[in-house]
Amino acid sequence: MSDRPLTLVLVSTPVGQLGSGRGGGVELTLASLVQGLVQRGLHLHLVAPDGSCSPVQSAQVTLHTVPGVDQPSWQHAERDSPMRIPQDAVLPRLWTCALELASDADALINFGYDWLPMWLTPHVESRIFHLVSMGSVSAVMDGAVADLARWDQRRLAFHTRRQASDFDLVEPPEVVGNGFDLSRYELKLGTDGPLGWAGRVAPEKGLEDAAAVAARLGETLRVWGLVEDNAYARRIESAVPAGTIEWCGFKPTSELQRELGGCRALLNTPKWNEAYGNVVVEALACGVPVIAYDRGGPGEIIQNGETGWLVPPDDRDALEQATLRASSIDRQACRGWVERCASQEGLAARVEAWIRRGLTPVDGTIS
């Protein structure tokens, strides 16, 4: 295939409008990738729920929005739950729009973790690729990923090898990592700030462990992120001394990085297999060491003893001891790792290379 500029249709997550925070890390990934692909000269159609904002104002990006009811996230479903599409759902409308645009595009990239677009992939002429945003949380989705891998695994990419290992693949996985606009993150070298925690406030994120460690150390824990489960947040707050948690809310990147950069360490306490760990890299980009459970994507990202400390999953004692060693981490080394491994430009180059390889016919595949 020639190296002429590609035209791509990017289909956003159906769990919430872009800019709302409900899409979690997918929103940040999509924004970074759109900016990076525009810099590489690609032309993009961005399909998203009504109320969404384009992350880039450029003649190379056209935003298409559609109405509909948000799709329930698989993250909050029982493992054996069936596929559910609400009445007046936005999910099929996103794909009706995307497939109409596909006749003038080289390929479509799906950012939603959903069964419908994976099922569609072998059944339509348009070439659909999937940047898988989560690990294994659903039997239905595990089957969809495995079926697509058997049909043509080139259509799948993952953020980390640990994430990909959750699935039944037929070949080594395509791993593209993630990337960030590093001009938006300022390196801060101070080491005497509070402890921080960032992410959606929901049980799978394990905020209670970080709060417990902060309470043991007699420190304040600043918490950034959308509170998805208010009852869960109240339970955590009631379990630690008053004033331990400072709720900072969901913040745009400019505010988050400014406040997060003042922390002496970020605690990362996932109870599930995180696909990547965007907040880990955002902290590192500000020079903030990360103390994390050695689980999922963060366990692959953090360089133990260089950019933070990894401890056994769910071990609060080990988390506390590692937090006391945060000052031994060189904050410039944290930023250096991000510049080498998680830039916006690097992500865009890796994704474009993946798409171009997948568009090249190979003997023995339907492609």
Rank of each mutant, 00 (worst) to 15 (best):
P5K: 03
L6G: 14
T13S: 15
P14S: 09
G16E: 08
Q17S: 15
L28R: 13
T29D: 03
L37N: 05
H43K: 04
L46S: 09
C53D: 01
P55L: 03
V56S: 07
T62E: 14
H76M: 10
A77C: 06
P82N: 13
C97P: 08
L99Y: 05
L99I: 02
L101Y: 07
D106Q: 00
A107S: 12
D114M: 10
W115V: 13
P117V: 07
T121W: 03
T121G: 08
L131G: 08
S133K: 00
V145F: 10
A149I: 03
R150Q: 15
A157N: 01
F158D: 04
F158W: 04
H159A: 09
Q163Y: 09
L169A: 09
E171P: 01
N178L: 03
G218K: 08
G218I: 06
V223P: 11
D229C: 03
A233V: 05
R234G: 07
V240H: 08
T244M: 08
E246Y: 01
E246K: 14
C248E: 04
G261H: 10
N268G: 00
P270A: 06
N273A: 09
E274C: 14
Y276I: 10
V280F: 04
E282W: 02
P289Y: 10
Y293N: 01
G296M: 13
G296F: 06
P298E: 06
P298V: 06
G299P: 08
I301M: 02
I301P: 07
I302M: 05
D314S: 02
D315F: 02
R325A: 12
A326V: 11
D330Q: 01
D330A: 06
V338W: 06
G358Q: 12
L359Y: 09
P361N: 08
G364D: 00
